[in-house]
Design a binder for these strands. Structure first.
Length: 205
DNA sequence: AATAGCACGGCAGTTACTTCA
DNA sequence: CCTGAAGTAACTGCCGTGCTA
């Protein structure tokens, strides 16, 4: 989806729903996104725009091995919002789209590129974490199922050890014969135990 | 047609910096 | 204030792909 020509000359082939709102100032028609220069010192009232001053740090004690401190900018809410909108539409951009978006946001193409790379990584990480949680839940459920089945196996083994004369329940109608009822009455076997003897029972109605 | 060299882009892993409790 | 954890912008190195000579 291309941007509205009314709002901006920027033509993205992806949908950026909020661009029309943010792209033009109501009165002047200029971009509302602040003029963000990576080499610009942040204004004191703008906490969103925090970065290390871009001057060389050749004489700075905190300089790294290259003699420069890494510059790090904090994206404004508007920038983050628009990047996020773009990401929702499309997880990867062509270089042209990157350039257009970068121009619009007053960022470098590289910054947009890096943002999308990091965003994809975060997205993947989140997905992996969710998958991990899901698998853990599955594991818990399967563990419980396994426990119940093991229990049932033990019960069946115990029943197999019983004399055949008291295991005479009909598997079709699940009605115990007199012999089984008697056994239950006498406490020799429970009904649940009797029902589980279907496979081993030989007396059918 | 096969191949080496190159440019480009994405990804994984890491680093460096900011923010906040 | 200090500190550690969390979040994230930026960097690095590797790999796959497409193009071209």
């Amino acid at each position: 989806m291309a941007l509205s020509p009314k709002s901006s000359s920027l033509e993205l082939s992806i949908s950026l729903p909020s661009f029309s709102q943010l792209s033009s100032h109501p009165s002047s028609g200029e971009h509302m996104v602040r003029d963000l220069d990576i080499n610009q010192t942040p204004k004191t009232e703008d906490r969103e725009w925090m970065m290390i001053a871009a001057e060389p740090y050749a004489n700075d004690e905190d300089s790294n091995s290259c003699g420069r401190r890494r510059k790090k900018l904090r994206l404004t809410k508007e920038q983050s919002h628009l990047l996020e909108d773009s990401f929702i539409q499309k997880h990867t951009l062509t270089s042209k789209q990157k350039l257009e978006l970068a121009t619009f946001l007053k960022l470098s193409q590289r910054q947009v590129e890096v943002w999308f790379q990091n965003r994809r990584a975060r997205s993947k990480l989140k997905h992996t974490e969710m998958e991990c949680k899901y698998l853990k839940r599955c594991f818990g459920s399967l563990k419980e199922q396994n426990r119940l089945l093991q229990k049932e196996v033990e019960e069946l083994r115990a029943l197999n050890a019983m004399p055949a004369s008291i295991l005479t329940m009909c598997p079709r109608c699940e009605r115990a014969t007199d012999a089984t009822d008697n056994a239950v009455k006498e406490g020799t076997a429970t009904r649940s135990q009797s029902r589980r003897t279907i496979s081993s029972s030989s007396s059918l109605c």
